[in-house]
Amino acid sequence: MNLTLYVWRQKSSKDPGRLVQYEAKDISSDMSFLEMLDVVNEGLIVKGEEPIAFDSDCREGICGMCGQVVNGVPHGPRKKTTLCQLHMRHFKDNDTLYIEPFRAKAFPVIKDLIVDRGAFDKIIQSGGYISVHTGGVPDGNTLLIPKHDADIAMDAAECIGCGACVAACPNGSAMLFTAAKVSHLAMLPQGKIEAARRVCAMTEEMLAQGFGNCSNHYECEAVCPKGIKVKFIAKLNREFIKAQMTGS
């Protein structure tokens, strides 16, 4: 199939960017979206032009490195699918695709479709862990965790930190990302001890990093490639209220 692409090109964070038109020719429907871009890039390199810069690593939907906005939707049109797992058979011949970087103040563009998601690391650094030292821990089975709780914790822990939630949010909020980590740890007995401090520190860091607030649009849930639910945002809110009421 043949496609017309409008791709965001931006030399560096300091330069202004713009959409540039490219023709993607003879694209196989078996290609993944990123392989389609690989093909376009090979063509550009041979012509002596600079290829389109974009992030990707594992290409099997788990590392969270890839992510672009395709026709207004982060990770493209297929539900619960990262861009690297989205295949071209979901597009039609002669389609026009707008390909843009994830946009948010907290995710400045580094080059073309690559953005800096270091703000996510900063949120985790502010408290997205259990403060345990290596060694000196009890046997894993001394801590009993109901299957139901462990399953919910795992639902939240599946977040791959790709940033699609921020890209989709009209407010550029990182609530779903933050909520997933807060909920994952707050569901587990070993994580409850620091839950109050954690939720306050992480939401504060989220604002400090320039993310917006949650307006409950649930756009994040709709684009999340791992299907993380907004019920975890409600859980974060509860954890926050609990923390405030207990004065911690």
Binding site: Y129, V132, G140, L144, A153, H184
Partner: peptide, 22 residues
């Protein structure tokens, strides 16, 4: 064996049975 204990302490949500055991 120490690895499993360490990871549990860190909050790794390993699969559990209905009684809560790993």
């Amino acid at each position: 064996a120490n690895i499993i204990d360490q990871c549990v302490a860190q909050g790794v949500p390993f699969a559990r049975d209905y009684a809560g055991y790993l």
